[in-house]
Amino acid sequence: MKNRIEEAFKNKPIFMPYFPLGYPDLQTSVDVIEALAKNGADLIEVGLSFSDPLADGPVIQQATQTALEKGITVKKALAALKELRARGVNIPLILMGYYNPMLAYGLEDFVRDAAQAGADGFIVPDLPIEEADEFESVIGDLPLIRMVAPTSSPERMEKIAREAKGFIYLVSVTGITGERKSIAEGLSDLIASVREHTDVPVCVGFGIGSPEQAREVGKIADGVIVGTACVRAVGSAQSPVEAARRFAAEFKDGLTRGR
């Protein structure tokens, strides 16, 4: 099997939206993710819901809470992932979720079932490098995407970046998920220091809310991660699928215009 992540980064910068399975309900979320994939998304972070999402702002908190109320489980999410592959979604799909539901599922079972369902990697925001061994020991070839924050010291940055696989998730702001009015100052310095230690792509997330901001960040990063704005646009729409199509097209256009 070819490496979908490497394929995706052949045309940089890439557009990477986040959307949680199960919101506003399971079937709609599958349709939404398919629509994102077929209208410009180069990689999708597929969200797994958790009752206590401590790194997320109110928009994603509410969406994942709704998903849980509507009955989403890890098992159902993996089945939905399989359905997406069956529908011909061929871009990389990275599962993003907190650690406890993965532990409760059984780590080895989770990784195996996720790989079989078509996942290309994992993002676990409450798993810093200090605690990553347990997960990485069962993960095989799939990458656990490492995160770098503006608060990371140069030593930590080096340690995180040196063994990174897939891509680096650079958190652009000190804070939780959610759009910001302006993109953090010093972002290009931050990206440059990460690049000193790794050849994997560096993608920026947290706080990017508009196609214009995406274009700005896309000038200096290999990928632009958009979570809250995507969830907000789709969640508030009369037709979520139509909104997803438009959202993906606008951001992709914003990112690639003039290139």
Binding site: P128, E130, V148, T151, S152, S153, E155
Partner: peptide, 25 residues
């Protein structure tokens, strides 16, 4: 990265937080 004190109590404990907080810990 190693801690000055043992971060665990047997298999319990640890530091399961977002990277942003690790430097503060």
């Amino acid at each position: 990265m190693s801690t000055l004190l043992n971060p665990k109590f047997g298999k319990y404990g640890g530091q399961f937080v977002p990277e942003t907080l690790m430097p503060a810990l």
